[in-house]
């Protein structure tokens, strides 16, 4: 049943983008007589300005994240947090991924690959890791890109809320994997 659903959704996902690319102009052209080519070009012009506007924000965030990752500070944090998390049944093997997930997409994918190679895809560590990876986003990157694109520097409670959600997501991944797959 679940295999069927996953297969079905992944198969459907393949068709969504081409359908949107054709379906939206089709509706606009046939129902509303929109000049689709002209309007497309008009909208597409913004692509360049927005992408360029993000640069300084992304440089600021990615440099800090990159330094943090390279410094080994994550390992220090790991040693600090491991005993506490052990108490609530959070496997220490999954902690690096949980800490990396909000910082770096490629970094956390690398850690997930390590888990699969080390313990096998059938292992609880890999299942928890994959759940964590799939259920969360790269918070720092999203913040830099989304706020950067409109020039927002005062982010207020965004980071606090985002990181709390990441922590809840990581704990939920452990909880549901142990409950349903254990």
């Amino acid at each position: 049943m679940i295999e069927f659903m996953v297969g079905g959704m992944n198969a459907a996902a393949k068709y969504i983008i081409p359908l949107l690319l054709v379906g939206i102009p089709l509706y606009a052209l046939s129902v509303k007589k929109v000049k689709v080519y002209e309007v497309f070009v008009e909208g597409a012009k913004d692509g360049f300005t927005i992408a360029v506007r993000i640069i300084p924000y992304l440089v600021a965030i990615l440099v800090a994240v990159g330094m943090f990752r390279a410094s080994g500070a994550l390992d220090l944090l790991l040693n600090l947090l491991a005993p506490v998390l052990n108490l609530i049944g959070f496997p220490p093997e999954n902690l690096p991924l949980a800490l990396m997930r909000p910082l770096s997409g490629s970094g956390s994918l690398g850690l997930l690959t390590d888990l699969v190679n080390e313990y096998g895809a059938e292992s609880m560590y890999a299942k928890i890791g994959a759940t964590m990876f799939g259920s969360s986003e790269t918070t720092f990157y999203v913040l830099a890109v989304y706020f950067g694109s409109v020039g927002i520097t005062r982010s207020r409670h965004a980071l606090a809320a985002g990181l709390t959600a990441d922590a809840v997501g990581a704990l939920a991944a452990v909880f549901f994997c142990k409950l349903l797959l254990g």
Binding site: I2, V116, K127, A130, G134, S135, T164, A172, A173, F176
Partner: peptide, 24 residues
Amino acid sequence: LMGATASQIFLTTILATLASTIAA
């Protein structure tokens, strides 16, 4: 990455993402 095991984490991923979204 996960191969055949991917279908097992389908439900856990949705539940975890739901929990984190509600928390957010």
